[in-house]
């Protein structure tokens, strides 16, 4: 099962490290990654595979949010279907 992780916030050292560590700890594989600075804001989008994760998606989203709060950025982890549903006819 694939999910999309978005990270939004003020750029600072350690964001990618913190997020990658969280993903590795839970056995989540990164399949695609894009990162940019949009209007001064750090914006990172990852497509991840959570098939081998130790937690179900519902719990991972809460854990990801908590990691974001610790680093000082906003993190969303969402099932990819929500984006496909909304943006594909």
């Amino acid at each position: 099962m694939k999910a999309v992780l978005t990270v939004l916030g003020k750029d600072k050292p350690g964001i990618i490290a913190g997020v990658s560590l969280f993903l590795a700890e839970h056995g989540i594989n990164i399949e695609d990654i894009s990162q940019t600075i949009m209007q001064g804001n750090f914006t990172m989008i990852m497509v991840v595979n959570i098939e081998n994760s130790d937690l179900p998606l519902g719990e991972l989203t809460a854990a990801a949010k908590a990691v974001g709060e610790k680093i000082g950025v906003t993190i969303h982890l969402q099932h990819e279907d929500i984006f496909n549903a909304m943006h594909e006819v």
């Binding site: 999309v4 969402q78 984006f83 496909n84 943006h87």
Partner: peptide, 15 residues
């Protein structure tokens, strides 16, 4: 998946 589409969805909920 387009970056702009993903961010649009995220913003709909957040903002």
């Amino acid at each position: 998946m387009k970056t702009s589409n993903i961010l649009e969805t995220v913003n709909m909920v957040d903002k």
